[in-house]
Design a protein around this nucleic acid. Sequence first.
RNA 1: GGCCAGGUGCUGGAAUGGUAGACAGGCUGGUCUCAAAAACCAGUGGUCAUAACAGACCGUGUGGGUUCGACUCCCACCCUGGCCACCA
Length: 906
Amino acid sequence: MKGSSYDHKSVESKWQKEWEDQKLFSQVELVLAKNKFYNLWMFPYPSAEGLHAGHAFASTGSDVYGRYTRMNGYTVFQPIGYDSFGIHSENYAIKIGEIPQKMLERTTKHYEQQLRSLGHAYDWTRTVTTSSLDYYKWTQWLFLQLFKSGLAHRKAALVNWCPSCKTVLSDEQVMTPAQAGKDPKDAQGKITKPKEGMFVCERCGTVVEKKELEQWFLRITDYADKLLENLGKIDWPEKIKIAQRNWIGKKEGITISYPIEGKGVSLDVWTSRPDTNFGATFVVVSPEYAKKNLINLIVEDTKQQFEEYIKSSLSKSKDDRIYEGRKKTGCFTGLFAINQLNNYKMPVWVADFVLADVGTGAVVGVPGHDKRDFEFAKEFGLEIKRVVVGSDKDESRITRIEQAQEEEGKMINSEFLDGLDIHKATKKMMDYLEKKNWGKRSKNYHLRDWLISRQRYWGAPIPMIYCQNCAKDGKSWFSSEEARNFPKIGNWKLRIGNSDWKSGGWWPEEVLPVELPEIKDYKPEGTGKGPLANHPEFYKVKCPECGSEAIRETDVMDTFVDSSWYFLRYPSVKSKSNTSMPFDTYITKKWLPVDLYFGGAEHSVLHLMYARFVTMVLNDLKYLDFEEPFPKFFAHGLMIKDGAKMSKSRGNVVNPDEYIEKYGADTLRLYLMFMGPMDGYPDFRDTGIEGMRRFIDRVWDLFVNHKDNIVVEGKDAKVILIKMHQTIKKVSADIQNFRYNTAIASIMEYVNLLRDKAQLSVVGNQLSDNSKTEKLQSDDRKPKTDIRIRCAEWDEALKTLVLLLNPFTPHLSEEVWNSFLKQKSAIQTQPWPKFDENLTIEKEVTIPIQVNGRLRATITLASDEAKNKDIVSKKARNLKNVLKSLEGKNIKETIFVPSRLINFVV
RNA sequence: GGCCAGGUGCUGGAAUGGUAGACAGGCUGGUCUCAAAAACCAGUGGUCAUAACAGACCGUGUGGGUUCGACUCCCACCCUGGCCACCA
């Protein structure tokens, strides 16, 4: 069994070089390609540590599909790039005291080397680096398109502020310490005790603060409905769609106006459950709402108390105001709102648990139906009433009725809504309120506008100029004449004449790029302004409109803006027109949208939502002719090591390099794909990868020792042939469904069979001269050397094996294809093997025999016989064990599934 | 609190109404070896039973149900993981 052993190092480097030299994976002209397939993996951000095994798991998953698709006759475009602009890269640069540009030069090189060593079939001639000038120029361009469309605007907002990263964070980047997987730290970096309601920076684990700052926002909320609707049109995992739906959080409801007693004004409250409104006993407004709308109505004697409460509330961050288990606080305003349904006088309170940006910023309190309202009512001794709606089958509502009764709540019977279920009652109430003109139906969304300003250095400068002079004059970028003549685009209209269409004296930069200067003092200072604000040579400009002294925006854009459009850039990288446009129109028309997007489920609501939004905007602006960038998306799982998510802080990061070095890229690829289903959470184990190397050695051995001079019985030849066709069928179907683990398992079965048969032939050949093997022989195992498999059939069996393995182990396959099978053209260009359905059917079938559903015996029959109920039944009943079970019993019924099973019911 | 995913040998996992545990890893025993490693061969859910072969019973989180037949479908419960959340 000895032979030359498989030398993965020389084989892998040889073929990686060969693929590169042959330009196998880089299409010279994308425009000319036929049968296009855009295979995309979410690009990584080049961290200092390099790729870990989790990346390799994901990227290999994408690569396997790409290689499979290529062999099925498609022109596959599989690009790669780096999400290198942003806080993650910058933080590391700060840590090692190097400027990000320098650091990235090194880390991207390292990434490239790692990705190449994994043998991925990337088109290395078309890479994208988001921090390069010729990329972020177009990120700025994108911002300007959004601005000109009124989709980028500036407003003051209470924002999340990380005192360590010294920047604003989006809501999505703020989480509980547990979610971030980090111990919370204070602003000085000291680890503090986690407490209820504590929120930290996703990136560094520092407890976030609240700051009121002027920020740029993108109006993703304008697209909430379309983002929601289109989910029905795309082939995505249901759980990702659900996550997006929840994130958008569209709710139908009604805004009810309650007149304020004696003041001649009313108070607006949004609710999704107006059916419970007979039970409303108070109204609570947010401090912000109170400050804006109620302050002038307050009578003198309560005013001071009221103002103090508002002041203290507004100084608190959202997270200090709202967390699980916090005791409700509040202050009575002295006002009463009238519920016109029953003329109930509802006291109006202000309380800090009510949020300004949800609904109208005011809540109607229905303590009999809502836990939170109930708590508030108990705290301040407000009346608790309950409305009986419909049949009240809903368990939780029954519980609340009991609770209300127990807690001295008053039960109200509403004839108005009698006998209706919640939905009907809600509808009837809304109709009624609208008819009476007491309320108006409206929708509410959980989705907020996308905050993109970052007070940092390492990002694309927001290409805007602020001119105080213009702001004073109240000029706008378009004259009102121009604005009126603006074209209507699609079914969506540019936001014209809206007051915040243009914020003050802000003007767009028209000559791009606004280059990010190389500066040494790029560390964030936490002043509320980015480091660029210390560089007059950057920010001092002439106003493009009036020519007076003006300043540039010194904030930069969120990384997610960079990654919201990168997939559009790849195919156009080498296009001539890419200096005048971010993407070549013709190539884009041909190559987009992406055919398969492969990426992590953790991007369910961030990147994937932003990319969809940006694509929709560009579609409305007629730059693109499709609305959805990723019609098909596969969400892979996360790799686990020692039962926990891989992370640097846990110290369980697996570096793929050492495994590639020791066992080879093919071994690693195969192992990663075999560990479990692609959308699962496989646990990485060293012993597992050793087993995989053994498998590769066995395959190699098959070619070294058993390629030629094979003697196989005719019967065995048939067995091999059938197994071959079954394996092609199974592997093809499994790859298409991303079930790589079972695809590999079936290849292993196939290899085991081939080896078994080859083994016998070796034994047979050696019988005469090798006495040691005599122990292995027995009469039925001794091959009859007069019936031989034809060499061509054995060759086909081996050839098929190599082809099936190719997506998983491309180097090994290429080497075998070339050296042993003497094929000239690359295996990558070979067609995927076809199977013959007829040849997947076994000659003999083993059928289980059951009595009353319990297995009693099995019987092996020719496949023709196995289809015949009478034959199977007759033969089965003659078996000893079956006879025993049937003894003295009457067969009432015989269940027969052809070729599958027979069951006697007695 | 809401939504989602899941619970199968010692481990990763197969099996989506028809022989549960494919394929691997691990372990045990054997062959080879001075020895070890590697390689190869055999065994490996549990209990009972047998000289051995055969065999019987139990077994997919728990309890019910549907079915000739349930890991798979239905109902209730328990547990684990993930996402969202004082969202009105």
